[in-house]
């Protein structure tokens, strides 16, 4: 008797309504993943820097665009971290740079247009070195580097 009553009450009990997931959740998940991707893989660029097409070499390591970044356009115009500077102001701008942790020489990263005259590049590198900065040339990894001997 009691068994029959309990069975009846179980049948008559209204079905528990499960909370329905918001249909926007998959979209939000994908957008979060996109956000994470751009945060981790992207490099913020100042206006003008993204227009520079750097030299392509078979470099192996992939690096993010470092700072401080001296961008040199094809016609030799300079900008340091997005701020346009004259050639004569380069030494003064380098004097304002701070050395990385554990070093006493500031490092200036140079992003030069691939079609910039090589002699202009060498002159600017020389001026930067003379102003007391170690320089590093930013190139684009073209991939397909030759195998090591």
């Amino acid at each position: 008797m009691s068994l029959r009553r309990s069975a009846a009450s179980r049948v008559l009990r209204p079905a528990r309504r499960r909370p329905r997931a918001d249909p926007a959740m998959p979209t939000i998940n994908i957008v979060f993943l996109l956000l994470l991707f751009f945060l981790l893989a992207g490099t913020l660029t100042a206006p003008g820097e993204s227009e520079i097409d750097p030299a392509r070499v078979g470099a192996e390591a992939g690096e993010r665009l470092p700072r401080p970044l001296l961008a040199i356009t094809e016609d030799g115009a300079l900008s340091l971290d997005g701020r346009t500077i004259a050639r004569a102001e380069l030494a003064e701008a380098i004097a304002g740079l701070t050395a990385p942790d554990g070093g006493d020489t500031p490092i200036l990263y140079v992003l030069a247009a691939r079609d910039l005259a090589g002699s202009v590049l060498v002159q600017i590198l020389g001026e930067a070195s003379a102003a007391g900065a170690a320089t590093s040339l930013v190139v684009l990894n073209a991939g397909g580097g030759q195998a090591s001997p």
């Binding site: 751009f38 945060l39 992207g42 993010r64 060498v122 020389g126 190139v139 991939g143």
Partner: peptide, 19 residues
């Protein structure tokens, strides 16, 4: 981030010395 970031595998060639 999609508009302002640049996704490119950059490499660095250290250059130092007086010119």
């Amino acid at each position: 981030f999609a508009l302002s970031s640049r996704i490119a595998p950059f490499g660095l060639i250290p250059v130092s010395g007086q010119g």
